[in-house]
Design a protein around this nucleic acid. Structure first.
Lengths: 148, 148
DNA sequence: TATAACCACTTGCACTTTGCAAGTGGTTAT
DNA sequence: ATAACCACTTGCAAAGTGCAAGTGGTTATA
């Protein structure tokens, strides 16, 4: 289900970048996915039950993609992958600081993140702790450090 | 480095199946990798530093592939992947019982497994605990249960 | 000593997947 | 009325995959 170059990248961008629409996924893509491949992967991921697709009420053409319980439970896998990549591949400070934080936070932090994703994507009640805010702060701190 | 259908499968077979040679990887493959693809992946993985390749002293043609420190550190990732797959994909009892055990054992068990892989693949001293033996026992128990 | 089996691949070829660039039909904003 | 936005689709060349057969050499067996 995930054994190709792009599927996990798409899920990562929905999960960590909160990119919920085709256009956002296409433009924001760090790695530069092609438009036809993105369309195909969104179709496959929906079929595989890792994303869901629904129209955005406010705008007749807009489509919103959401994580499902199955893809939310990929958080530990992605956290481990981030931790591994940070150690064994060349990475920039800005792009790895969130992986570092997520690794340090461990399973309790991952659970908090998953609870927050459930509220964002599945309509569950919002948890008290916001791991997303913590990740954003760490990222912005790293960005400022680079630009200083 | 791992974003294709076969690379992680090859590493899994070396790691969990202790398949160390081209022929063993080709024949033992549950998923049926093609011989040219296997040759290509072994080449790529060695180049990427996830496998190492050396001749087997006992037999002039034999080549032994070993895990590296980098691929041994994929254990947590593979453990999480196994745990996820067990929950979200159709799996047989025999083939998932080791994933279950590895998930239940958690990080201490993973560390023990990694220490044992370092002894098997990198020449480190053998640790006291043998996670490999625990996994084998669980697998054989499941096999016997199926055949009863 | 002849022969068979084993070893780690390689080759040729058909088929599938990927990626670029441009385009589609429709909706919303100015 | 027009431009911008939206989620894709299409055509085509290039790259990757997979099957079946073959390669040059080494080791085991009769």
């Amino acid at each position: 289900m995930l054994g190709d170059s792009w599927s996990l990248i798409v899920i990562r961008d929905v999960m960590f970048g909160n990119r919920r629409r085709y256009g956002e996924l296409l433009e924001g893509s760090e790695e530069g996915i092609a438009s036809n491949i993105l369309a195909d992967r969104l179709r496959r991921l929906v079929k595989a039950g890792l994303l869901s697709r629904r129209p955005d009420g406010s705008h007749r053409q807009k489509i919103i993609y959401s994580l499902t319980e199955a893809s939310i439970e990929l958080v530990p896998l992605l956290a481990e992958m981030g931790a591994w990549g940070r150690r064994h591949t060349p990475v920039s400070r800005e792009l790895s600081v969130r992986a570092e934080l997520l690794e340090a936070g461990g399973r309790p932090m991952w659970e908090g993140f998953m609870a927050e994703l459930r509220s964002l994507h599945l309509g569950a009640p919002a948890p008290r702790r916001s791991v997303i805010a913590e990740l954003r702060k760490a990222y912005q701190r790293a960005l400022r450090a680079r630009n200083r």
